[in-house]
Write a protein that binds this DNA or RNA. Structure first.
Lengths: 644, 644
DNA sequence: AGCATAAATAATAA
DNA sequence: TTATTATTTATGCT
């Protein structure tokens, strides 16, 4: 992404300046939503709004589609200040988690697709609201998707997160008129502090927590391509323009309702589930990554997972160091930025040696991060992150620098010595206090800032590398456990945080670096120094990712605990799921094969031409060639090896 | 490739003139390699030359890659005169088939990748040598990639194909100093006769057989576009500059050795495999296409296939008409042109009706050669081709016209009545004597000669059509079995034979013709008449194609037998457009990462050094660093954000 | 029930 | 930032 570009600049610039604004946003009770309950979310609605800022990412634009995944965007902790964080947060988190779980995949996709569409953005916002709602007391009650058109029901504070009409951003807290551009691509950097961007609000939701998670609805927006955009629809009722949305049920059915209805529903749910403080224990926990992954991978596994999670979570609790682990999101917000350094150092100190131990293997690993074995090993990270015992939020703190010192995540990073041995680590290895480096003020850095050393010596001093490595690992594990794809995460982040988070970026940032770090071990510092990256930038990213991840996870867990399987409604599979397998006619295949023989790598123009000629979508044709090449390659490979 | 450019001109001009030269090349025992064993390649090198005429198609130039397909191109029977076809051919074919199968995909890819790197080319060459070696008696022995630097070992004649250092083209046979430009894009047409161009030598290898086939090396020549040219590298040892090449083992490891070593290895292998006449039955046979396809489709199936084939082959032998079937290539050369008519007519006579029966289906078939059903049906062709009963080689003969009448292959083409009903035909349907038309003298015809009728009435008189059709089918099947695309074949041929063999030429000549023929049935003549190809051209091309294919197959079989998976080495596609994505070996990555850790911004000198050391292009290395830095930056960025 | 392959994700070269 | 390559998943058919 354009790094510094707009986002960073604004972020940095605004950071301080905007802070006040943000405050405003947060503080106000949502006009539409009454922010009554708080507990679940303590995060209450974050006023995140500012569509523009939220839009950030602009759209990378591609959409994702697919599987079961939950993604929560939780950019920055930003301003928690005004809001009161309640202990209940755990419950909230719980709910959110659940919800998120349901929603995720599709949500992400939706988000991605939405990017370009303002409406989508709003939807996303709305969804996030719903998610937030889940955090409310009445959590346990299953959400009824049956829509009844109660536009707004401010039962709980959680409702504070409003769904905004596409064009309209309404932050319950924030009375400011929403900017229609929630999705704007141009606003890459949404610093939490920036008042205007939607993402921020969402972040703000940091404490809102439910934000995205609520029930995510997939709203297919067809944009350029035959894309289906999935949106998570926020519970809020909005001031808003009531829009019709399609809800994709997991059963494959699609419902259409207005946003208002959805919001109402969401609210209702919130009340049911959120109001009654869900036992924290059940909420915030993470499942064993391995398990999760497993479950997630299988569509049907979801159910099992949900049922299983609680236990798993409990078990995790019992794990050593549970309390220390903080919710990344909340933590940072709560307490603080500065603290991070110490933590980071801790890691870094450890990190180097472990890393160095298996540089080569690590390198190989990088190639195949997803290996089951690897995944499993990574769980430790997850467990750490989700430690239930942690106080969830510190809304007030969020308002500080505008950036939440994310934190929990730090855990992950922190806890492990060198993440290099992802597979190797055990949960017990977690470091109780993981105050990581992340503390640095997010807003502070500007793009292209000087060396890492400057900002945080620790970062440079190998510590960062380790952290990075650990973080990358943990992040990946968590991501996977949620069933999210890089693309989804990227899209989600782009929506909330701005366009900088592309699939590639995430991949390279996490995977590549991870490995690099592993390999570098001690020389890390040198690397960093040479790198263009400013420490601040690095610091900023991590918290964002962690926050986001945590939210997603919390949502999932909540959802689960709630037992309400919104799943059906929610996006688990949202709308589209997998594209229907195309069946090519013999004639079409004939032509395609002829082309393929002539040219295995047709140009875009050629592909388009073929698509048009044959009456298939361009993408279908493109993929056909991809697969054909792959098949040829495989064939050759086999031939060469085995035949005779 | 640049077609005409240097090569063509020379080619054509030289054609007649050079002929002697070529002979020379062929006849002489490879300086490096001793052309002792012959058996594997009875086909000896065919001298086919006249690139220009052959070229026909010019090059469409795109590449393809993909799946399982067998395509036999069997253009024209052209000249069988000089060469003696030995019955053994079947055995040879068998072997070839196997080898070919193994190599294809990867080969193609490798080639593609190699394009830019001279070294690669050399590797490819080395590989081809290796592959070639497999054809040798001691075939069964697994090839040891472990390189020992024996530069040249002329044990067997087969070795005649020298590996040439990238820049150097050395034909074993040909004492002439190799031209350094083996890879040169500009030398598209390398007529066999042309002394200077590598390709020609390679062709010359025709009788060398191993030449191209041995191991096919893809020599990526980047031309205008980011084209990768695939070259089959001849086994020969060369005068050559010894170059270092990286061998990618299937196990993922990469070896680096000099070409000389590779050659030596190849030779050794040849000796092992080739020297001891492998029982023809096991060697030359083809598997039932259906079976093959099946096996191929499944990666694991390969092994089974290998084991199964022998039996299959044997069974085929028992099939009716086994003996008659001749290797298309060798046949023409060997015995004769004229004879072809009868055979062809037989087929044609039958053919039409069968063809007409299912024109449409045939059409479909063409489109999806890979379809299992189709593949299955096609087996007849293979079985025919590989008739085990045939005497495998006529080493001595090879030296003759310089072209080996390869042999077994003819079977395929000839044996079947109309190949049109590929699916329908049963082995029994094979016609016993298939003397094809191919005999005509390759050198003779000039491009754009008038109708087929003119040159050879017989050719015209349906006979040729049948043959062509059969040949086309057989060739296609074989081509597909190797996983090669027409483009690839064209590129490979352009390198070895000169620029005349464009994908389109091949396509039109083979595939198109084939299909057309099938559909035309009776109207075949009309089709042919309409074709741009002159009978002579067709005749010329056919042998060339057969030779090439045989070599490729032999290489593959050898390779396979050797167990050495050259695959990795071989490249694949050409295309232009974007440069082909480079695939770094783990070793290379290790080294690169080590450097990166040390210095993220290596100097130009360092980059050059690394490139040289690793055998990649400098630019590739440079870019790697760019990407690596970017990845690191991204990582850091993300970390920073997400971190606590 | 298994296979062929379209669709989708992850990694990474260009 | 794009696009291509590798892998993986899972659908549609037989």
């Amino acid at each position: 992404m354009a790094e510094g570009s707009v986002e960073e600049d604004t972020g940095e610039m605004l950071g301080p300046t905007l802070a006040p604004v943000i405050h405003t946003m947060h503080t106000p009770v949502p006009s539409n939503l009454s922010s009554k309950d708080e507990e679940s979310d303590c995060e209450s609605s974050v006023g995140s709004p500012e569509p523009a800022s939220l839009a950030m990412g602009a759209d990378t634009g591609t959409d994702l589609s697919m599987t079961t995944r939950n993604v929560h965007q939780r950019l920055e902790a930003a301003n928690a200040t005004e809001q009161t964080v309640s202990p209940n947060s755990s419950a909230t988190a719980h709910i959110n988690g659940t919800m998120a779980g349901l929603v995720s995949l599709q949500n992400l996709q939706n988000l991605a697709s939405l990017q370009n569409l303002p409406q989508v953005a709003s939807l996303a916002a709305g969804l996030s609201n719903m998610a937030n709602l889940s955090g409310n007391p009445v959590v346990n009650a299953p959400l009824n998707l049956s829509v009844s058109a109660s536009a707004t029901i401010p039962r709980s504070n959680q409702l504070s997160n409003m769904q905004e009409s596409p064009g309209i951003m309404t932050n319950p807290m924030n009375s400011q008129p929403p900017t229609p551009n929630a999705m704007q691509p141009s606003n890459p950097l949404l610093t939490p502090q920036q008042p205007a961007t939607m993402p921020q609000f969402i972040l703000a939701s940091g404490h809102l927590v439910q934000g995205i998670q609520g029930a995510q609805l997939l709203i297919p927006t067809s944009q350029g391509l035959a894309t289906q955009t999935i949106l998570t629809i926020p519970v809020n009722h909005v001031n808003s323009t009531d829009q019709m949305v399609n809800l994709a049920l997991n059963n494959g059915q699609v419902m259409q309702t207005s946003l208002a209805n959805l919001q109402a529903m969401a609210q209702t749910n919130l009340l049911n589930t959120s109001n009654t403080p869900v036992p924290p224990t059940s909420n915030g926990h993470l499942m064993n990554p391995a398990t999760l992954t497993h479950l997630l991978s299988n569509g049907s596994a979801a159910q099992q997972l949900l049922q299983t999670l609680p236990q798993m979570l409990n078990n995790h609790h019992s794990n050593p160091n549970p309390p220390p682990i903080m919710n990344p999101l909340s933590q940072p917000l709560l307490s603080t930025t500065p603290t991070s350094q110490p933590g980071s150092q801790l890691r870094s100190q450890r990190g180097p040696s472990p890393m160095s131990n298996s540089p080569i293997s690590a390198g190989h690993m990088t190639a195949g991060p997803l290996n089951p074995s690897q995944m499993n090993s990574s769980h430790y990270a997850d467990s750490k992150l989700h430690n239930p015992s942690m106080p969830i939020n510190a809304p007030a703190d969020l308002m500080n620098g505008g950036r939440i010192a994310s934190n929990g995540e730090i855990h992950v990073a922190t806890s492990h010595g060198n993440s290099a041995s992802i597979m190797k680590r055990s949960p017990s290895s977690l470091s109780p206090n993981c105050t990581d480096s992340s503390t640095a003020d997010l807003l502070v850095d500007s793009p292209n800032q000087p060396t890492i050393n400057q900002t945080n010596s620790n970062v440079v001093d190998g510590i960062n590398l380790d952290e990075i490595k650990d973080f990358a690992k943990a992040f990946k594990l968590r991501r996977l456990s949620l069933g999210l794809t890089q693309t989804q995460v990227g899209q989600a982040l782009s929506v909330t945080e701005g366009p900088a988070y592309s699939q590639s970026a995430i991949c390279s940032a996490l995977a590549s670096q991870m490995f690099a770090a592993a390999q570098l071990s001690t020389q890390q510092q040198a690397m960093f120094e040479k790198l263009d990256i400013t420490p601040k930038s690095a610091q900023k990213i991590k918290p964002v990712l962690e926050r986001w991840m945590k939210e997603a996870e919390d949502s999932l867990s909540r959802y689960k605990s709630g037992q309400n399987h919104l799943t059906d409604f929610i996006g688990m599979e949202p709308s589209k799921k997998r594209k229907r397998r195309t069946s090519f006619t013999p004639q079409a295949l004939e032509l395609l094969n002829a082309h393929f023989e002539r040219n295995t790598h047709p140009s875009g123009t050629e592909i388009t031409g073929l698509a048009h000629q044959l009456g298939y979508e361009r993408e279908v044709i493109r993929i056909w060639f991809c697969n054909k090449r792959q098949a040829l390659k495989n064939t050759v490979r086999m031939m060469s090896k085995g035949m005779v």
